[in-house]
Every structure is written in C-alpha cells, then in structure tokens.
Amino acid sequence: MDAINFVQEQLTKKTEFPDFRPGDNVVVNYRIIEGAKERIQAYRGDVIQIKGIGATKTFTVRKISNGVGVERIFPMNSPAIAEIKVLKRGKVRRAKLYYLRELVGKKARIREKKFVKVTK
C-alpha cells in the first residue's frame, strides 16, 4: 500500500480545484482534442457522487439534457479537466444522490444553500 501511495504521489499532477461536494451545481471545462485542434467543452450539472481516494478519485455529474438524464464520470486527476467552477451550493442530506435518478421535473431539484459557512 505504501508503494502504491508513493507511486501515485510521484505521478499524479497536483491540480487545484475549488472544494465541491455532492449536491453542488458545477461547470466542468473539459479539454477535447479533435485531430490537431484542442477546444474546451463545458459540462454543467449537479454532482451526485464523489468516490475513491488518491489518484483514482472520481466524481459524477448529472444533468438533464433535452429531457434525458445524462451522467458523466470524471477522474479527479484527469489532465483533460481544465477548470471546475462551483455555481451553487446544494443543501442535501446524503453523500450519494442516486435518488435523483428516479425523480423528474420539479422534484428533481436540489435546494440551494444560501449561506455557506466560510472555512479557513
């Protein structure tokens, strides 16, 4: 286990992202390489889970696109992620928001946290 931690420390690039949690509404700016060109695609949705530790940590972002639910899993340490922006802090009571998959319309909204405690 120590060996794995050592290797991960050596090979994963340190990336600074704002702290976000399940329930937050985020925009992920993702680098897409098309032939020789590189462009950035924005993906906006709610974070419904964060799982894993260290180099293999991932998070899932869910959004409703043209009435169809779409989920996308991003590795936290992926070099293709250019930026993560937190738009809204959600007020949720669990760490994995799988229950949103069964809900549609107004029920599938997440209440917003209006006052966020500033932690230093």
Partner: peptide, 16 residues
Amino acid sequence: MTSIFDEAGNSIACTV
C-alpha cells in the same frame, strides 16, 4: 493496482 494518466490523457491501469 492503481491507474495513471499518459501524455494523451488516457487513464492506464497498472500494478506496482
């Protein structure tokens, strides 16, 4: 096992 990213951004499963 763990995984690393190569230059192209692909995630590669590997063993230490």
